[in-house]
Design a protein around this nucleic acid. Sequence first.
DNA 1: TATGAATGAGAGTTCATTCAT
DNA 2: AATGAATGAACTCTCATTCAT
Lengths: 231, 231, 231, 231
Amino acid sequence: MTAAAPGAPRVRQRPEVRRAMIVEAARAVIVRNGVGATGLRDIAAEAGVSVGTVTYHFGSVAEILNEVVVLETERFYGAIVIAVDAEPDPVEALRMLVAPLFGDTEQVRQHWRIWSDYWTAVARRPEVAAEYAERIRVWEACLVRVIRRGADAGVFRSGADAGVFRSGALPIDPDTVALKLAAYSDGVATQIAQGVPGLTNTVALSWMWTFLAHELGVPAVEIAGTGHQHL
Amino acid sequence: MTAAAPGAPRVRQRPEVRRAMIVEAARAVIVRNGVGATGLRDIAAEAGVSVGTVTYHFGSVAEILNEVVVLETERFYGAIVIAVDAEPDPVEALRMLVAPLFGDTEQVRQHWRIWSDYWTAVARRPEVAAEYAERIRVWEACLVRVIRRGADAGVFRSGADAGVFRSGALPIDPDTVALKLAAYSDGVATQIAQGVPGLTNTVALSWMWTFLAHELGVPAVEIAGTGHQHL
Amino acid sequence: MTAAAPGAPRVRQRPEVRRAMIVEAARAVIVRNGVGATGLRDIAAEAGVSVGTVTYHFGSVAEILNEVVVLETERFYGAIVIAVDAEPDPVEALRMLVAPLFGDTEQVRQHWRIWSDYWTAVARRPEVAAEYAERIRVWEACLVRVIRRGADAGVFRSGADAGVFRSGALPIDPDTVALKLAAYSDGVATQIAQGVPGLTNTVALSWMWTFLAHELGVPAVEIAGTGHQHL
Amino acid sequence: MTAAAPGAPRVRQRPEVRRAMIVEAARAVIVRNGVGATGLRDIAAEAGVSVGTVTYHFGSVAEILNEVVVLETERFYGAIVIAVDAEPDPVEALRMLVAPLFGDTEQVRQHWRIWSDYWTAVARRPEVAAEYAERIRVWEACLVRVIRRGADAGVFRSGADAGVFRSGALPIDPDTVALKLAAYSDGVATQIAQGVPGLTNTVALSWMWTFLAHELGVPAVEIAGTGHQHL
DNA sequence: TATGAATGAGAGTTCATTCAT
DNA sequence: AATGAATGAACTCTCATTCAT
């Protein structure tokens, strides 16, 4: 709880500062209680301000929730995407992009919690999602770029049927592979969030490497061991 | 609408019958509006009974939602699981178990809608999930059995690193592979539900086959072509 | 205050009964505080029920206000209009219709209070007014009928310019005269509501008779004296 | 919109100037939205100042509304009253005083809009009305003076019962006649505001002349024709 | 068994007013 | 003189739950 003591002196903040504080508070409430249980009064209490202050700075609760997700996205992926786009080696870029998804930190766990809640909340409101989709899908867009670079450079090769039948070199479709990986990582993160025993972030990450090894033919060398341990 | 005609005499039903009718009505409302927008009044109206009748038979709305998911699970997977367990050929059993996930029918779409909504709603209430986990995870449990049979029979082989480096025969862990597939299928179904362009059930199913080809070495013959088409 | 004591036992009423009780309570609040100061909680308190009960029976506060005006209209004018339409003598019918407007009773004062408030509140929402206009304008419609009967029978004659210049028999337009009288009575009632000194209902009524004497040539015999007394 | 350009430097104004600007803005908002929908923020936005500035100059929103009506009254009636009091001929003076009430201009329509809204709003607050009554009733007070002059000069004569029975010369009560006309004009203006079909300002004015012809015996010559046309 | 009127806490939102700057 | 961030009470409306019938 960051909530100010009752009767605390009224402190003025510039709007962008106060907005940021409120969004931060809302993020904390969402992480603790979930999007569905995040109300105006919870946010205000967490931010240590009155409800009036919250509605003064935001037109609606939905606007706050959207801001939280946008903030979360920028904070979580912003630096990563920049670094990845600057990395010349596609294989290394791929590692830099995927590894943070299942880092073993509280920040990662909170990220997935916000993410999964938000998607379900907006699933029935596609018009809301559309407005934010572009800003939110930065990770996936970056992944597409990385895959394309690797495919063009010839370091990624389609392994879709590797070991099953003798296919020649199939062309890689970056959009498809990116979507597959996004779906897979989302699904795995959801399972983790539900507390499946033995499914840690480390294990999840090894699964991603295995998946990419099949899809793009990249070696899953460094952490090869972890992928095979029993759950 | 299943709602009874207005003014129709409401017949007395035995509790289990009335409960089933209400759960059926609740399922319809969830499919139409989503779990988050399913209220007591909606359920009662859909069932053609009063709100009092609903609360007479159920202790809370949450209980109804749980029942819906249990019913959905039994209905969707019940016959499949029995047939799969009776199928001697593990490869055929695997096909029988996975194919229905992304059949191109309204029933399948409704199933995923209920499923994804429920998990997110329930993610914050692990005690609820635990009570129902066993009954809900029948598909996954069946998958574990099938994989174990195939592994024991030697028809499934670890293809985790197939085509990447020359690994010898790694042991298959049925629980792990089942969990992976469950996560993947959930993630893909969520993407479909959000209307990703080009991502149809047919495409999704081909992705599952590809995934299993890598994980278990089973040939993805029948529908091999679809998996490679551009999204 | 009709409000029930706190903790009073929950009493069930049939919907139409409860609705009527709530409308009655809303009427009392409007009379006391005005339409603009009539809120959900005031109505509930006055009716001795919870706010939930009010919203259970009415979809919105606006619906209640409309019901109050409709009730008020029917109660105030219903019997009068029937009697007037049954009265064969147009002059007598006219007296029966106009006299109640400024009867010296609390009911009449309340009526004008509700009436004036409602019209102003609704003036900016013509679509609301339209729905209720027909039911509300029963008095004016009845007046039109009476004037037409009297004009047809030749007992009313245009006195628009009587005493000013020698006009022959001008045709009477019932709609116009009715509208004039409605406007005049509304205006006078508004002045009374604002507590103009010396302006009583009795005086106001004499003004109506004088007005009609000029417009329709009916003698203002009975109360002729009062019209000339100094305010 | 009178609102200042965004980002424009806000000049310091002397209090009476700023007050006048705010009252002017409030008038515009009232005309556009009605008294009931005129809030502090609307006024501030319209005036191009902050809410703080508005409350710095005015103790409450009600005070602003009162000022608007006082301003409106002075502006609408001020010059008229002066001219009327300077006009030696009572009949001509009467014409000069009544004609502007239903002139066919936007200004007139705005005036009645403000006027009717205000009266209903303050009807429940007699203490407010009292404070402003004197300043607001300037028109009525002037009318009283004109009638008295005309009566004293013998050019107005009581026509209360003209054409009905042969009364001798009844004494005219200027206060009563003025109040009657005020009530009538208010009532008719309210009907116009509600959009009664066919009821234009021109027709309304002819009604006023007819009314005064009866009450004071003045000929309704100039526009005599319009008073009789069918609505 | 079944009903549905009644409840009241809690939701988001509005808004006149306060006051530190 | 002017600002505008901050306040909190009050608003309408929703809804799962209770319980007398």
